[in-house]
Design a protein around this nucleic acid. Structure first.
Lengths: 182, 182
DNA sequence: TAGGCCATGTAACCGGTTACATGATTAG
DNA sequence: CTAATCATGTAACCGGTTACATGGCCTA
């Protein structure tokens, strides 16, 4: 899932400038499975326009900088749908937390406590974000996707809360063993 | 979570050659939140050895190529634990499936059916992998992590199965609208 | 005998991030 | 007056992948 497809996806929902695309990917409807930076957005937008997949127009605004708003073209929409049609690559995810959890016995209970509490907070925030996304948008497929997200992340949070202490105890056990060995 | 940390994590559990590290990351205990390629493993291993974080020894094998088995050094373990101590970065994940789901109304029911059934299969396989990881290893922290994985992925699969048809129906709806518009 | 697994390694490439450059406006 | 938000863009860098090179053994 490259920058090009992501931008096309966002522009398929509504017109946006590079700046607004960044916002969408960081805070908006796509934020919980996507994130792109300016350094890739602007060059890609230029390339997309050169290829005729998007069309840019300058909009003068009073009291703030001009912005260049892009809309997807028919050709762009076709290209995007074509991309959607090919079977999706398997999800990629990397989790530093899982690595730490797996090595809980190598660290201290403080480190584990901090790590898992941080995660619980993040998960709660994410659930709120998805929840508001869900209530703000009545597009059925978006509803489906956000419901999915809430279900999965809800289960995630549930496990974290129910098993927080047992993970912390593993770090404790190691300290006890250390003391016993002295 | 860079290659260096990943390799240190794997070697912290047991000695391994570059080839075996690749296997661990693709099929083994770390496979469901990690994946690295030879192109990054071998150079990193060389760098790690130069830095004294791992120690390599050649092992001659009968009937197959020699292999260079690495073990983590005390310095390497310290470095690894230090990495674990810093608060974990937020999980990264990218999902092409979610993008497709969110745009279900742009494609055909066939495409959606294929995508979701593919995902259901992958999820079932993943659950089996995690399940066998879980039963093979009685290391408490690994048990915790695999239980976590099974809980979350179980909820994921559950949602997919319960809501498969409603997503497919969204693609159908679009066809109906098209027909109505003709 | 062909293909797959074992096994190590390199070089080219690529997609993306970080940091920088620039500058106006508005809210605290 | 300062910080934040709006807004666009580039250049250097970097972490990683892909593809290639090499070669022996084992299985179908």
């Amino acid at each position: 899932m490259n920058t090009q497809t992501l931008i096309l996806a966002i522009l398929n929902f509504e017109d946006a400038s590079g700046y607004e695309i960044k916002k969408q990917s960081t805070e908006g409807a796509f934020s919980y499975f996507v994130d792109i930076s300016y350094g890739s957005i602007y060059p890609t937008l230029a390339k997309l326009e050169a290829d005729g997949l998007v069309l840019g127009r300058s909009e003068t605004q009073s009291g703030r900088p001009d912005k260049k708003v892009f809309s997807i073209t028919e050709k762009g929409r076709e290209e995007f749908v074509k991309t959607l049609t090919s079977p999706p690559a398997i999800d990629k995810f990397k989790s530093e937390f899982l690595l730490i959890a797996m090595c809980a016995d190598l660290t201290s209970p403080e480190v584990i406590t901090k790590a898992i509490d941080k995660r619980i907070n993040e998960m709660e925030e994410l659930l709120q974000v998805i929840g508001s996304l869900r209530s703000e948008c009545d597009h059925p497929a978006t509803q489906w996707t956000t419901s999915y997200g809430m279900h999965v992340k809800g289960a995630d949070l549930e496990f974290l809360k129910n098993n927080r202490d047992s993970l912390i105890a593993m770090a404790d056990d190691r300290l006890k063993l250390d003391e016993a060995a002295e």
